[in-house]
Design a protein around this nucleic acid. Structure first.
Lengths: 344, 344
DNA sequence: TTTAGCACTCATCTAATGAGAGTGCTAACA
DNA sequence: TGTTAGCACTCTCATTAGATGAGTGCTAAA
């Protein structure tokens, strides 16, 4: 059995209606709502075929039909008319992403908020990935006795400060020297490289400064500990989920929100499977909690290097064309802006 | 009508039962569950009195009784046996709060998690309040051209970094001088003082350094902008709310979670009305969203100065003695630990 | 003052019923 | 041969009507 033009029209009608109403739709209603020029009976026959093809299904006997995961997949791949964002929407995204924002944290939280607002879905934004940033420079500033503030600037512009315990018998001047050695050896290197290969080298360099002999290794450990990168995940518009009829059930909401609290799992949701826009529909998702959801995600880059990802999460019955257009445009804007920001 | 011993016993029984079951309780059941040595009929008469006194109420005719807000209030003020925390609980709190934690952020997020875990309620932790911290020192570090990293250390130990735009014609050396002036003038002053009184003084001091004449004021504005304090609120265990039968209703959950997203309102929830433990019961709450909830809060201090607050939020039908004991013990531990940390 | 007894109330649970939307099948039609 | 009208049938959902049970208030007796 083949998909002819009429079947396509009917499938599109079913999906588009279901996206809006979240109710199963029957042949009669299709004939009434969409002007296809054929009778309910004919539509019934075609729907029967679509069901055999696995593109639609009945929640129960003698209810209307709803799209199956495969149906959505076919819709996204073959049927959907790609949506052009309105000028207004584009403008908002451009304005908000090109705002002069100094700290990457802000970019992330801001993006997450904007994304959920525009799509009315839940947004997930994944911050700088492990291993994508290298050391820029390290500074030490005096703090309490026995402690110092370590300020670390990474090459992607992220600045972090950590308080490190350095022991009481280390002077400010000694710290300066440590910083000098670290800066010289570590600049442009990733944390991984340092931990794997450079550590011994730095240590022997430091111990040349006889004062530091006994303290050096311990200090290094503490410092590197402070450098430990953690990828951050931001969620936006989690409440939007509660507006979806799919989540009228409290237990469903509970498992959903419990999932939202696990950063590690959230990251996996955004795991890209290929270049460009990733669309994961219903049961395609690796987590069974999201077998009634879809995820649209894409990665953002500085220059050509992927450093993070953004995505939206919503019920399988989401407005794919809109969400895809927004995620796509937004990653492009963020990448441009970040790349420009780093060159500045 | 007076509260005699028997009335008290009955009221206590009603409240304690309701805290556990969340179901209205009737005279017969009270007689069965609690060994008060009187018959259901007698209990009925007393309950009738308690209702006249406004301490209990009927959800509808011929249902059992439930405590009213006034009933809870009476219970908390007069009836409740103050709970002693178990050794184990105390130990956990002590261990977790005296852990060597360098950054105040961590203290806050940690506390919030711990608090919600121990109480099975939602915890709210309010970070350092505006105006409670004074400048310690300011440093500038090189960043991108035209920008610098400003590292600010406050006297309460908080370290923040911000990227500030400083204009292209400012050299590193000039920045050092600015820092020197700022450190000299601002140390120990609050941001408010600086903005109100010191600004002019700093400006005239800076302009003495002839190089900086034209840039000084603009830079100052940018710097002070970066200093702007924002109080942070952390929520923990929001999901605990979903386990309460009071929140079986999705709309209720929605308004609740929507409220949780407004930091400003959350702060008001913790607003202390008097020294020590604050208990706000049901309708006493300023927000009508929480007329079926109670809040137990207390402030924490560094030395004698109040710098923040912690609290738990739960249904009016919460375990007051337990929650109060935990909040009380926890603020004390945090205060001690922070005070010690600052002296270190 | 306390208690037993009794009539009454009201929410909740269950089963029955009917309406409505939709299907599949068959036969007629173009 | 593809399309359509008609019809019997199915299944959910909302509504209704009892039945159940926990609880109350009142009265009268202990």
């Amino acid at each position: 059995m083949q998909m002819d033009e009429r079947k396509k029209k009917i499938l599109r009608a079913i999906i588009q209606d279901y996206i809006v109403t979240a109710e199963p739709i029957g042949s009669r209603t299709i004939a009434r709502k969409f002007d296809l020029g054929i009778s309910p009976a004919t539509i019934r026959n075609e729907m029967s075929d679509l069901e055999v093809l696995g593109l639609i299904e009945q929640p129960y006997t003698s209810a209307g039909r709803i799209p199956s995961d495969a149906g959505y997949r076919y819709y996204v791949d073959c049927l959907m008319v790609e949506e052009e964002l309105s000028g207004e929407e584009k403008e908002i995204i451009e304005r908000e992403t090109t705002r002069r924002i100094n700290e990457i944290q802000e970019v992330i939280t801001h993006t997450s908020k904007l994304l959920s607002q525009l799509t009315s879905l839940t947004s997930i934004v994944l911050g700088p990935l492990k291993g994508t940033s290298a050391f820029g420079q390290i500074h030490f500033l005096p703090y309490q006795p026995g402690q110092a503030i370590m300020v670390m600037v990474k090459d992607n512009g992220v600045v972090e400060n950590h308080i490190v315990d350095i022991g009481f018998n280390v002077t400010a001047e000694e710290l300066q020297r440590v910083a000098a050695v670290l800066n010289q050896k570590m600049r442009g290197q990733s944390l991984k490289t340092v931990k794997k290969g450079l550590l011994q080298e730095i240590y022997s360099e430091l111990t040349k400064q006889h004062h530091l002999l006994d303290k050096a290794l311990e200090m290094l450990a503490v410092i590197l500990d402070g450098c430990e990168e953690k990828e951050q995940v931001y969620l936006g518009g989690t409440l939007n989920m509660l507006n979806q009829p799919e989540f009228r059930n409290l237990d469903r909401v509970k498992t959903l929100f419990r999932f939202f609290e696990e950063d590690e799992s959230l990251k996996k949701l955004l795991q890209p499977t290929h270049e460009g826009l990733n669309v994961t529909i219903g049961g395609e998702n690796i987590f069974k909690e999201f077998h009634d959801c879809s995820v649209i995600s894409a990665t953002y880059r500085i220059d050509e290097e992927t450093i993070g990802a953004i995505g939206v999460l919503g019920p399988t019955r989401m407005n794919y064309s809109k969400a895809m257009a927004i995620v796509d445009f937004m990653t492009r804007m963020i990448s441009e802006n970040l790349t420009r920001g780093c060159k500045r």
